[in-house]
Simulated assay, not measured.
Amino acid sequence: MELKDILNIIISVIISFSSFIIKSHRDSSKQKKVLASAFFAEIDSLQKQWEWGTQGGLKKVENNEPVPLIFNRVRENYFTVYDKNADKIGMFDQELVKDLVYLYNDAKGFLDTVGTWEEMIKNPDKDKVVNLEIILRNYYNIMVKQQNNVFDKANKVKDQLKSIIGSN
């Protein structure tokens, strides 16, 4: 084997390895964008649903009107993107990972609050003499604060995700 043949082999290996690295980086970047898009869509749609679903009742509390004894049952897992991809969030930077985890934990806490609200409406404690409307109004105030907290975090995370989705 001549030196020329050896150099051709070495050059071919370097070109192949470089192509592999570039393709891997491109694939990783694409996966990151796709995952960021999925998280954005899930967060945005949940935010819109919750805003629409709680808007009427929360406005009544703000206006000091009677609290409606109606509720939306939480029956589904609304965090499918997060639950199915939590092991992949390490592809994002540390701040976004932290913000995603805080957002989803707070959102799940909000749904626990809604579940407690449902239970209070369905099964009021008949042994205690309490004004159910006062309790529900106070609980609504807690829900407002939780929802606002979740929405603030959601907007921050969505801005971070937009920067990933929009980048090349």
Rank of each mutant, 00 (worst) to 15 (best):
S28E: 10
S28M: 06
S29E: 12
K30P: 04
Q31G: 13
Q31V: 06
V34F: 13
V34W: 10
A36E: 04
A36Q: 06
S37G: 15
A38Q: 15
F39E: 02
F39N: 01
F39Y: 13
I43E: 04
D44P: 01
D44C: 00
S45R: 10
S45T: 06
S45P: 02
S45D: 07
Q47W: 02
Q49I: 14
Q49N: 08
E51A: 07
T54S: 09
Q55A: 06
G56K: 03
G56Y: 02
L58V: 02
K59E: 11
V61M: 11
V61Y: 09
E62K: 12
E62H: 10
N64M: 08
E65T: 00
E65D: 10
P66R: 00
V67T: 05
P68F: 07
P68C: 00
P68D: 09
P68H: 04
L69N: 05
I70N: 14
I70G: 13
F71P: 08
N72V: 11
N72W: 10
N72L: 11
R73D: 15
R73H: 14
R75M: 12
R75Q: 14
R75G: 15
N77F: 01
N77D: 15
N77I: 02
Y78I: 04
F79Q: 02
F79S: 01
T80S: 03
T80V: 07
V81W: 05
Y82F: 15
Y82I: 02
D83F: 13
D83P: 05
K84G: 03
K84N: 14
K84P: 02
K84W: 01
K84A: 08
N85Q: 12
N85H: 15
D87R: 14
K88Q: 15
I89E: 00
G90A: 12
G90R: 12
G90T: 12
M91A: 11
D93L: 12
D93F: 13
Q94M: 11
Q94Y: 11
L96P: 04
V97R: 13
V97Q: 15
K98Y: 14
D99E: 15
D99F: 04
D99N: 15
V101T: 11
Y102V: 15
L103S: 07
Y104V: 05
Y104E: 01
N105P: 00
D106K: 13
A107G: 08
F110D: 03
F110T: 04
F110R: 04
L111N: 06
L111E: 05
D112Y: 07
D112T: 09
T113W: 07
V114Q: 05
G115P: 02
G115Q: 10
G115I: 06
G115T: 09
W117E: 11
W117V: 02
E119N: 14
E119L: 14
E119I: 14
M120Y: 10
I121K: 09
I121Q: 10
K122G: 00
K122V: 03
N123Y: 15
P124M: 12
K126H: 09
K126G: 05
K126C: 06
D127A: 10
K128G: 01
